[in-house]
């Protein structure tokens, strides 16, 4: 399998069969707290796609051109986090400067996902699975889209759920987690088709 084809396979696998939220259960906190409305979920989802795709690429560069030559692979956790935090902060500043509308729609969510575990997770999986540069980028992009799909689906369900009678003890995070589990089961139907 050549790298180009592998990258495409990884892209789709990251969206469906190995959805980072529904199979690894990463990025749950913002998923649970922001999925109340479709509109805000859209903004946060878009922000996650952007940040995952760019940080997986950035961290690939840092890992392969800084950490490996210096023999500092063990420091990747702390280094990845610093890179992600600085990058997100910079992007927020730039967005705020250039476009008011983009800031209102997307920029306002960036601080929420600076230390999102799914973002760090993507960078760490990229190392564990020994992806190449293109593959890393596609994996980040695919994972972002997967996370986006999951939160949009959940927001749609939760908006309808407002009219439903949920038992008192299950309200809020409880019922959301149960539904997430069911969605994960549905996504498992894809498993085995392609793998990361």
């Amino acid at each position: 399998m050549d790298t180009g084809f592998a990258a495409v396979a990884i892209f789709f696998a990251a969206i469906f069969t190995n959805n980072i939220l529904l199979t690894n259960y990463l990025g749950m906190c913002s998923f649970l707290s922001v999925s109340r409305e479709i509109k805000t979920s859209l903004g946060l989802g878009a922000a996650v796609i952007f940040v995952m795709a760019s940080t997986s690429f950035l961290n690939y560069i840092v890992y392969h051109f800084v950490l490996i030559p210096l023999g500092l692979e063990a420091l990747r956790f702390i280094v990845f986090i610093i890179v992600i935090a600085a990058f997100v902060q910079l992007v927020e500043m730039v967005i705020e400067r250039v476009s008011e509308t983009l800031y209102a729609a997307l920029g306002i969510f960036l601080p929420l996902i600076t230390v999102n575990c799914a973002i760090l997770g993507v960078s760490l999986f990229m190392v564990i699975r020994e992806y190449g540069m293109l593959q890393s980028f596609m994996y980040g992009l695919g994972s972002g889209i997967g996370w986006f799909l999951a939160i949009m689906a959940m927001a749609g369900i939760r908006q309808r759920l407002k009219k439903a009678q949920v038992p008192k003890g299950l309200e809020g995070a409880g019922i959301t987690l149960v539904i997430t589990g069911m969605m994960a089961l549905a996504f498992m139907g894809f498993s085995g088709m392609i793998s990361v």
Binding site: V62, V66, L75, I78, I82, V83, A86, M93, V94, E96
Partner: peptide, 22 residues
């Protein structure tokens, strides 16, 4: 040195951004 260098580099970047972009 590597971690300090990287963190320092990013910090300088942030300071510059703060003084220009922001």
């Amino acid at each position: 040195a590597a971690v300090s260098g990287l963190a320092g580099f990013l910090a300088v970047l942030m300071v510059i951004a703060d003084a220009t972009i922001a």
